[in-house]
């Protein structure tokens, strides 16, 4: 087995705090009172059977879904709205404020979602140019630096359709990085990839974690969780079942559900 690459745990003040997050789709409760915190520089891996709500947690954080109830705070700022001065009425933010908060999170999608009409460089430069207001040359210089970081400097002028899945996902990571987010959310970033391309994406993510990027990763790559995560959170049926350091959780899970899930994924 490869030895752990984790640095020591970061300072205690949480960067992100999720309190009693609930999400209902129709009459189905997808998230039930999910609470957890993440410190700056921490890499947290979210595991669990499909349908357990992992992806919905990420989507709520980035306001791609509106939580039914619960509070999310990023560096002290409440996400999605504010309480009216009398403290009783919740006032959702307008579009501009939501957009402003969204860009503090990077989001990497399972299916990459690159813009097919733009080159790799333009994909990465679009956000800095349009939302941070950087001049084109500055935005492109920044984009080039981030493409370099995911080792795709040679492919900057190619369209997504001309790139392999692994390369596309690395462009997507560069696109998220170029916004200089406070943390990055990865939603099953390797699930849509051919097996032989998975490692190149995981390598990039591993390097990011080593550089101290805060991240929440939803994945089925257990070896990645073991090597990179500071903490593993196991979810089932819309709730957190248990969480802990990867060694502890993988070798001595406390709950029967966790044990059964781990037995399944180990047999893959």
């Amino acid at each position: 087995m490869v030895g752990p690459e984790r640095s020591s745990l970061p300072a205690p003040a949480p960067l992100l705090s999720i309190r009693n997050l609930c999400k209902r789709f129709g009459d189905r409760m997808v998230l039930k009172d999910v609470s957890f915190e993440i410190g700056a520089g921490e890499a947290v891996v979210l595991i669990g059977p499909s349908g357990s709500g992992k992806t919905t947690v990420l989507r709520c954080l980035n306001q791609l879904e509106t939580p039914t109830s619960g509070t999310i705070t990023l560096a002290g700022d409440v996400i999605g709205g504010s309480l009216a001065p009398d403290g009783t009425r919740w006032k959702p933010f307008g579009e501009a404020d939501i957009a402003g908060q969204r860009r503090r999170f990077g989001f990497v999608f399972q299916r990459f979602n690159l813009f097919p009409h733009l080159s790799a460089l333009q994909n990465v430069a679009l956000g800095p140019r349009l939302t941070l207001g950087l001049p084109k040359a500055t935005a492109e210089a920044r984009a080039a630096a981030h493409l370099e970081r995911v080792r795709l400097a040679d492919h900057r002028d190619k369209r997504p359709g001309q790139l392999s899945g692994g390369q596309q996902q690395r462009v997507a990571i560069a696109r998220a990085l170029a916004m200089e987010p406070e943390l990055i959310l990865f939603d099953e970033p390797t699930s849509a990839l051919d097996p032989e391309l998975v490692h190149e994406v995981l390598d990039v993510m591993r390097a990011l974690a080593r550089d101290g990027m805060t991240m929440i990763v939803v994945t089925h790559e257990m070896s990645f969780a073991r090597q990179v995560a500071h903490r593993v959170v196991f979810m089932a049926d819309g709730a957190i079942v248990e969480q802990g350091a990867p060694d502890a959780l993988f070798t001595a899970p406390q709950h029967e559900t966790t044990r059964r899930f781990l037995a399944h994924v180990r047999n893959r």
């Binding site: 579009e95 969204r102 999170f105 999608f109 979602n113 813009f115 939302t131 916004m179």
Partner: peptide, 16 residues
């Protein structure tokens, strides 16, 4: 839909 979501995730607003 993923195109809109990706654009939202980098902070673009509806018009853009």
């Amino acid at each position: 839909r993923g195109q809109t979501e990706a654009a939202q995730s980098i902070g673009l607003t509806r018009g853009k």
